[in-house]
Simulated assay, not measured.
Amino acid sequence: MVMIGVDAHKRTHTLVAVDEIGRKLAERTVQATSDGHLAALQWAGQWTAVSFAVEDCRHMTRRLEQDLLRAGLPVVRVHTRFMATARRAGRQPGKSDPIDALAAAHAALREPDLPVAMLDGPARQVKLLSDYRHDLVTERTKVINRLRWHLHELDPELTIPPRGLRSYRTMDAVAHRLNSFEGTVARIAGDLLDRCQELTRQVNQLERELRDLVQALAPSLLEVPGCGVLSAAALIGETATASRFRSKDAYARFTGTAPIPVWSGNTTKVRLNRGGNRILNNALHTIAVTQTRSNGPGKDYYDKLTARGKTRKEALRLLRRRLSDVVFRALLTDERARAQPAPAALQAAA
């Protein structure tokens, strides 16, 4: 088998082919266009069994991945951390496109449980909307912070609740209060308030769209205690199809909930995994914290761990690891349900 590592950029992709023991066979650079991807496929055709390993930066590699998958070639995604490790272990010092492509190939040979790329599905739409909503929320926070400084300058006695400027009622009251002021500061504050209202409207609209999508795509995931619409959207979008992972343990490594062994001798120890997908890890942490605040299996498991002497942080880490398996099973259940054909009666009615 030949593994082809890819270092992707906006204008060009560099490909390096290695054999099953990591010896470099050939190198090629193609344009980051459909014609360039076709040239890469023709170049790879000189070997019988070929797999591709691309750096996990889907904004750069998405079109290439889609063309490779439509051609029937397997593609795995290599985390940048694995590539850095492979570069440091390489004989050739430095950093260049061929070195990075070779590092991707070597990392793919060394790591057997890398996530497999798949054709875009409904999870892609969820991710785009979720990321766009996050960007708008971040922008709204910046606008609110600037607005609060101007409001404090205009009226130091004006009191606004910590999250009040997310409420239309509070924003209407502030707009009415701004009508009594004149000058540049009041004008800027009015513009910022208008922008805040527009951003809030967009954020709420996106959340409604995400709610409809998540309810249709992942009803089993929403049944997990503590998993709301936004957490479910993050899990669906970042997972990008659970079936591309070989096992729940591989998924736990991807989410950063699998602990890292750090022991030698007779004492077995592990430490916190700071790698993995941090968006997934944050969503699992939100679910874990929510479960500890209400009755249920998560709360019982958390209390049992703390009773055994675990600290709050340690108990939450162990609960996140368990929730990773629960989420993985729920996502697989929903994906299999969507893959099943509709009953004949429903098809006839349609």
Rank of each mutant, 00 (worst) to 15 (best):
A86M: 05
R166A: 05
I160R: 00
A32P: 06
T292L: 01
A250Q: 05
C57K: 00
A107G: 04
V224W: 04
G296C: 02
R91L: 11
T33P: 10
G265S: 01
R77K: 08
S264N: 08
G275N: 11
A345T: 13
A345Q: 08
Q42K: 12
L323S: 02
Q42N: 11
R58H: 07
R201Q: 15
F328E: 05
R211W: 07
R28I: 08
M171K: 09
R58E: 12
K127H: 14
D56Q: 03
E55T: 07
P219G: 14
P341R: 05
L206H: 14
K10D: 14
R140D: 03
K142W: 13
A17W: 04
A108G: 02
L158E: 02
W43L: 02
H285K: 10
L128P: 00
P259N: 07
V2P: 02
N145S: 11
R308F: 00
A86R: 05
A123E: 08
T290F: 12
L332H: 11
A307V: 00
I260R: 08
L305T: 01
R91D: 08
D172P: 00
T306Y: 00
L64Y: 11
L210Q: 03
V214G: 08
T241I: 06
H79M: 11
L41D: 04
V224A: 10
A345C: 09
R163N: 14
Q347S: 14
R58I: 10
Y132W: 15
H134Q: 15
D300W: 06
L69C: 08
V262T: 12
R62T: 04
A233G: 02
R321F: 11
G265Q: 03
E111H: 13
V50C: 05
S247Q: 07
L206C: 12
I99N: 06
W149G: 03
H13K: 03
A315N: 02
K269G: 00
N273F: 10
S231M: 06
A283M: 03
L284I: 10
D100A: 07
K299S: 09
R322W: 15
T29A: 11
L280F: 01
I188Y: 03
S247L: 09
L147F: 09
L193C: 04
R211K: 13
V214H: 07
A107T: 06
T141N: 10
L305K: 08
R140F: 10
G45S: 15
R87G: 00
W43I: 04
L69K: 01
F181G: 07
R244N: 07
L102A: 15
E198M: 07
P162F: 01
L68D: 09
T239V: 08
R133G: 08
R201C: 12
A186C: 04
I287C: 06
E182I: 15
A234W: 05
A234K: 10
D303R: 12
